[in-house]
Simulated scan of single mutants.
Amino acid sequence: MIRDKQSGKPVTHAKQAIPFQQNNLPFEIRTIDWMEKNRQQNQSPHRHNYYEIIWIRQGSGMYLVDLEKHEVAENTVCCAAPGQVHQLKGGEQTQGFVISFNNDFLLLGQDKSAVWLNERASPSFSNFSVARLNDETTIEVDHLIQKMVKEFDNFFLLRTEILLGFFRILLIYLARQSDSSTQAVNQTRNVDLVKRFFTIVENKYISLKKVTEYAEHLAVTPNYLNEIVKKVSGFPASHHIQQRIVLEAKRHAAYSDSSMKEIAYNLGFDDIAHFSKFFKNVSGQSFTDFKKQAVYPFNQA
């Protein structure tokens, strides 16, 4: 139990910010309207333990992902990775589909399309969140979605295999819309090491804050890890560790009423002064200033 250093009283976390919404199905496709009525998932910013693709077929609105807002319209695809805080604020006429799937389903298709989504849906590899499809791609995607809905709603022989086949094709179409889709996915040892590094960061950023600790988990030297991560991602390992911690701090500051002390403790900092200095050095502004500016994006005038 964590206690306040001055009073000795337990630090309460009555509002654990942004809890994870769970889904045990490996794959699911529903209409936006069905998700609104049955899951009520877009009433406030939220996050999942699974991937989500939202296909807006008709209407317009706003899509929030972490601390960014994106205007969306018809034929827009929105993508959220596990842990990303997001919310779709659509109008009354907004129609489309929500595709949810977990890592187990994604790993069934270990090809370039699966690798594309894994790298671009992950906030560690890319900031890809929203893409507007061209007319030709829209026709193909719409056709695929209808086939997926029909297959999902029935329980025919080899249902999972057929859904996976349609899903692979969908990812390929989305890859063609990506600015970087012409770049070949190079599955080298370096890329594999970096992917394992980001996986550990995502799972251990609260308890592990030094490059040396991650290097030990990966059985490499800290200098080598920094060098390879920088070569693949453009930034050293330390940068990504710090950014992940600050991202979570910003999420809690923006989407909960937690105090700086509570957030600091939740993120593994015993010294609130240390956390305050760390936050300012990494983000470029004080926690207090960020908290004052951080309001729910959809409530802004």
Rank of each mutant, 00 (worst) to 15 (best):
D135W: 07
R132G: 04
F128C: 02
F197P: 04
V11F: 03
L174F: 08
V115A: 12
R244G: 00
T138M: 07
F156Y: 04
F235V: 09
D135G: 05
I245R: 02
N223K: 13
D257K: 14
Q187T: 13
S259Q: 06
Y224K: 13
K204T: 01
Q58R: 13
G284T: 00
L144Y: 09
S113K: 01
G83I: 00
E52V: 13
P10Q: 01
Q95F: 05
Q16P: 10
T221K: 15
Q187M: 14
K5R: 13
I32F: 07
F156G: 10
S122A: 01
G8I: 04
S129R: 15
H274V: 12
G96L: 06
I18H: 05
V65I: 15
G91K: 12
A301P: 15
G234E: 07
E136Y: 11
K9F: 07
F156K: 09
V282W: 00
S256I: 09
K37G: 04
Q95V: 01
V72N: 01
P19E: 12
E140D: 11
V232H: 08
N190C: 04
A14I: 11
K89F: 06
A184K: 13
N190Q: 15
N299Q: 12
Q177H: 11
R120W: 06
L225C: 09
K195W: 04
E119V: 08
N23E: 13
M1D: 03
K277E: 10
L144W: 06
E151Y: 00
F101W: 05
I53N: 05
K209Y: 01
A301H: 06
V115K: 06
V115R: 07
M62E: 08
N154W: 03
R47W: 08
